[in-house]
């Protein structure tokens, strides 16, 4: 089964965490990535640029609106994600617990619809 781990956190704090190694990631993340890859659980993962660089589009009654920023202002911002392969929801939650962001933000875990 595939799961998406969504990283929600204070993006300002995440920005201030200076990447120190050659991958452009903090050592915490580098280690977590390595663990995912070693376990064959890593499917994909990306970090997003801050919400200030986002744009949102909605169409209502044939009118297209383009807005600056994310679709909602929230205390924690969506800042990155992993797609992982895990045998079940509990195993996916174990990965979420190991994700460095769980210690300063929230990891949301969502099952992917099997195509």
């Amino acid at each position: 089964m595939q799961f998406m781990l969504l990283i929600h956190g204070n993006e300002r704090a995440m920005m201030e965490a200076t990447p120190t190694d050659a991958t452009g990631m903090t050592p915490d993340y580098a280690a977590f990535n390595m663990a995912l890859v070693k376990a064959g659980a890593m499917v994909a993962g990306e970090r997003l640029r801050p919400t200030a660089d986002a744009a949102s589009v909605r169409i209502r009654n044939g009118r297209t609106e383009v807005l600056d920023g994310p679709y909602a202002d929230t205390k924690e911002q969506f800042g990155g994600f992993y797609i992982i392969e895990a045998p079940d929801f509990d195993a996916a939650m174990d990965w979420a617990l190991q994700c460095p962001a769980s210690r300063h933000g929230t990891i949301e875990v969502r099952p992917v619809v099997q195509s």
Partner: peptide, 8 residues
Amino acid sequence: TVEVRPIW
């Protein structure tokens, strides 16, 4: 809403 975010 469809949101677009650049990847880092």
